[in-house]
């Protein structure tokens, strides 16, 4: 894996931002399914579908298109499961497959309208559960505006990094139109921008 831009000793560990449990559960479900237990597949889908949602939506696909990409990813897994030699890598196989398809789908649709709709949808307040207190709301809104106010490239990169387990920098670089070596430094700059935005917003 190409890694660059990490100066800190905890760099490797810090990449595992997503709690490791998700990936372990994915591997466990996959193993049980391959061994003949259909609930293993159910569990794998349940634990990885939310991750795929966030990764795919980072490509600004409308909801319906995002759901199609995710469904195609699952169909690909079922049909090509023999190609997954290392069960530990099943989570990465899924996110990579979904990213490729999302990137292709997003590139195929050059009309800007869906993106604008998407922007609106994201800007509108989502319905929250009744127990959300006003305080939580304000806090959440401040954090959201800090994240949402980042440049497009930062939003996509950070969302992918936040939800994925060690994304492949080579592919990310291609998709973001950046040299491979600049992903690490860009991520660092994006995180710095977010830190500043959070401080300015009083969110922290």
């Amino acid at each position: 894996m190409t890694r660059s831009g990490g100066q800190r000793a905890d760099d490797d560990r810090a990449d595992d931002a997503r709690p490791g449990a998700v990936w372990a559960e994915a591997t466990d479900g996959f193993n049980r399914w391959v061994a003949g237990d259909p609930t293993g597949l159910d569990d794998l889908v349940a634990v990885m579908t939310p991750v795929l949602w966030h990764v795919v939506r980072a490509y600004r696909l409308p909801e319906a298109a995002a759901e199609d990409v995710i469904q195609n990813t699952w169909l690909a897994l079922v049909r090509r499961r023999a190609a997954i030699i290392d069960p530990v890598a099943v989570g990465g196989w899924l996110t990579t497959t979904a990213r490729r398809e999302a990137w292709r789908t997003a590139g195929a649709k050059t009309t800007p309208t869906p993106v604008e709709d998407d922007d609106l949808a994201q800007a509108l307040p989502r319905q929250r559960s009744a127990e959300d207190s006003v305080v939580q709301h304000d806090e959440g809104d401040r954090l959201w505006h800090a994240v949402d106010g980042l440049p497009e490239r930062c939003r996509r990169l950070l969302r992918i990094v936040a939800f994925e387990n060690r994304p492949d920098y080579r592919e990310l670089a291609t998709e973001l139109g950046m040299p491979v070596g600049s992903i690490g430094p860009t991520r660092g700059r994006c995180l710095a921008k977010l830190r500043v935005a959070l401080i300015e917003a009083g969110g922290i």
Binding site: A17, R18, P38, L41, D42, V45, A46, T49, P50, W53, H54, R57, E63, E67, I70, Q71, W74, L75, L77, V78, R79, Q122, R126, R128, G140, L143, W144, A146, V147, D148, L158, R159, V161, A162, F163, L191, L194, L198
Partner: peptide, 29 residues
């Protein structure tokens, strides 16, 4: 990155029906 994750989980949550729909599609396949 936790903040980023929380922000997207709150503001662009996974649609309610999605997991069940994907489970059905995968099981059928």
């Amino acid at each position: 990155l936790n903040i980023v994750r929380d922000a997207y989980e709150r503001h662009d949550p996974v649609p309610d029906h999605l997991v069940a729909a994907m489970q059905a599609a995968a099981a059928m396949a």
